[in-house]
């Protein structure tokens, strides 16, 4: 059997691409691509990968990184959970009852286009510089993707499936639990995924401009005290956390629905 050419191996490609990136980073950092300063200040603009790795260690030891990560994570999860608890039932009610839809839809149209970050000033005025303000903004911004995907899912429910369940003697409660909710699952996953992305974006923004804790605070703190390495470590952490959530929650969920998702395409 002939050996596969090593440069066609995806693992090799991944390592090569990361290595190229790190090398470029290192060269940019020592040559002063982003501006020239006296050598002892060079690290201020773009610290080398090695310096950043050292900072990761330092921050892990002091516990600062995990503490602020925990704070942001708590805000995102609470705000997102609130958005789900409100958005899913409301979306189902809007799909089911014309009246609820008529009452809620105008408000959705008014508030949905406002970017979540635009709520930051009001939230700080109302709730002060703490968790409450951050959670409020997160809830507002992740509510709409969850809500809109739920109503879309309700609109797309296959009427024939409901008829079939009715002819088999299903009552309204069984129609809801055995037909409506399973039909909604792919739409809910999409809504949750987008809502979670929105939640992270606004929590960072809120922490950068006001709320003095969490990963967003660390990002702007690093800049403020001349420790660009802290900012970069925080960015990397943020990327890693989002990647982890994507792969440990959403990808497995999607894989589960893959078995039957194809049937929706009709």
């Amino acid at each position: 059997m002939r050996m596969k050419k090593f440069w066609k191996d995806p693992a090799f490609q991944m390592i090569a691409s990361l290595a190229f990136f790190l090398l470029t980073w290192y060269v940019a950092s020592i040559t002063g691509l982003f501006g020239r300063y006296p050598p002892r200040l060079m690290g201020l603009l773009l610290p080398t990968p090695l310096e950043v790795a050292r900072t990761v260690w330092e921050m892990a030891v002091t516990g600062n990184l995990t503490r602020h990560l925990g704070i942001s994570l708590y805000r995102v999860m609470t705000g997102f959970a609130l958005a789900v608890c409100m958005g899913v039932p409301l979306g189902i009610a809007m799909g089911r009852y014309r009246m609820v839809n008529g009452l809620v839809e105008p408000l959705v149209r008014v508030f949905q286009p406002i970017p979540g970050v635009a709520w930051v000033p009001l939230a700080i005025v109302w709730f002060g510089l703490g968790n409450k303000a951050a959670i409020f903004i997160i809830t507002i911004s992740s509510l709409f993707p969850v809500l809109l995907n739920t109503t879309q899912g309700m609109r797309d429910v296959d009427i024939t499936l409901i008829s079939a369940a009715l002819t088999m003697g299903a009552n309204p409660r069984q129609i809801t639990t055995k037909v409506l909710l399973p039909s909604l699952v792919p739409y809910l996953i999409t809504g949750f995924r987008i809502g979670m992305g929105f939640a992270w974006r606004v929590v960072i923004a809120a922490e950068m401009v006001g709320v003095p804790s969490g990963l967003g605070y660390m990002l702007s703190l690093g800049r403020g005290i001349g420790r660009t390495d802290i900012t970069i470590v925080t960015m990397v952490t943020l990327g890693a956390v989002m990647l982890l959530i994507e792969h440990s929650v959403f990808v497995p969920m999607e894989r589960k629905t893959l078995n039957w998702k194809k049937a929706w395409g009709r």
Binding site: D158, T167, G169, P182, V185
Partner: peptide, 16 residues
């Protein structure tokens, strides 16, 4: 009523 079973042109199977 389950006494009257129905078969649909679109099969109406639950894809999940």
């Amino acid at each position: 009523d389950p006494d009257r079973g129905m078969i649909f042109q679109e099969y109406a199977l639950f894809p999940w």
